[in-house]
């Protein structure tokens, strides 16, 4: 089985995880399984492969052409990392129109040979058909290794379906608690539930698989870097902001409006990694939008 490692607009964090897999990486390169990886090798055209790992976001025509080329050449395509799966932090730029953003940065500049920008920032599966999704910013080495072991053996990789809370090992601090709070103002107490302690923790809505590193080991609220859980994606009534505000209001014994005015950066606090995800964007109370069709894939 040959693999390709493809970057679109990205931070290269997923590639760093790939390079950090130690013995498993040596096994992959020892068996000469990497056919295309411009980060590592001198190749410019995607070779036919069995599995293509694509990280990053489609931001302009060049990325789109590359994504399409990968789809044609690869038996199976994997959206690697939260940018490719849900838009990631880069997807927050979707708040602004492309030309407005460019004008703010570059004024009236014009470029020779610049590829056309995309109208909206969207996850990879909005551009090409994706077979598997491995979210995480970045996915842990364990997740990536297990995923590759399964995929390269021709098996269906495991898909995490519950939430970070399901993996989290903390106890309730007892409610109500003061808040909503910020970690910069009041450092959290490790071992206590961050949400119940009044922090905007995204654990209840975020996909599991990371081992709840931030809340359990670090005593920090989950920022949602693994992207929305199945329920958050599929239940048409779940909204990241509303759900978190409701939980925080209960934990701090305050009104929803009070929580909303205290968490005064809702885009960053509730949608840091998933603002570009159409399943959440298209959400309507009546439900049944196209994302439901993707249940089997995601």
């Amino acid at each position: 089985m040959q693999i390709a490692l493809v970057s679109l607009s990205s931070c290269l964090g997923c590639q760093a995880v790939f390079l950090g897999m130690e013995e498993y990486l040596y096994a992959i390169i020892g068996e000469n399984r990497i056919s295309f990886a411009p980060f590592i090798m001198d190749n410019r055209e995607v070779a036919p492969v069995d599995l293509a790992l694509v990280e990053g976001t489609v931001r302009h025509a060049g990325h789109f052409m590359r994504a399409r080329e990968v789809r044609e050449k690869a038996e199976r395509v994997v959206a690697l990392g939260t940018c490719a799966c849900f838009g990631g932090v880069q997807g927050l730029a979707d708040r602004f129109a492309e030309d407005t953003m460019l004008r703010r940065r570059f004024g009236d500049a014009a470029w020779e040979g610049a590829p056309a920008g995309v109208k909206r920032l969207l996850p990879l599966d909005s551009f090409i058909k994706v077979d598997y999704f491995l979210p995480g910013c970045p996915p842990t080495q364990d997740l990536l290794r297990k995923f590759l072991e399964a995929a390269l053996a021709g098996a269906q990789p495991q898909r995490e379906e519950t939430t970070v809370c399901a993996e989290c090992r903390v106890v309730s601090p007892g409610i109500p608690q003061p808040g909503p709070r910020r970690t910069t103002e009041a450092p959290p107490e490790r071992g206590k539930c961050l949400m119940e302690a009044g922090y905007a923790c995204m654990g209840p809505l975020t996909r599991d698989g990371c081992g709840a590193l931030c809340p359990t080991l670090m005593g920090l609220p989950c920022r949602g870097c693994r992207g929305p859980s199945d329920r958050a994606l599929l239940d048409p009534h779940v909204d990241m902001r509303e759900e978190t505000v409701r939980r925080l209001a209960r934990a701090t014994d305050s009104k929803a409006g009070e929580v909303e005015s205290a968490v005064n950066d809702p885009v960053h606090a509730f949608y840091m990694f998933c603002l570009a995800e159409p399943a959440l964007r298209r959400r309507r109370p009546e439900g049944s939008s196209p994302f439901v069709q993707r249940l089997g894939e995601r």
Binding site: S9, C11, G13, R59, H60, G62, H63, G88, V89, Q90, L92, A93, R95, F96, M101, L102, R104, R105, F106, W111, A114, P115, C137, R182, T183, T184, E185, R223, C225, V263, N264, D265, V267, H268, A269, M272
Partner: peptide, 24 residues
């Protein structure tokens, strides 16, 4: 090519949420 707009992405972020944003 492909300006990612991080200076603008960060606008409006609370200082508590700035670090995870610029990290990316």
């Amino acid at each position: 090519f492909g300006y990612r707009g991080f200076e603008q992405i960060a606008l409006g972020a609370h200082l508590d949420n700035l670090l995870p944003v610029v990290s990316r």
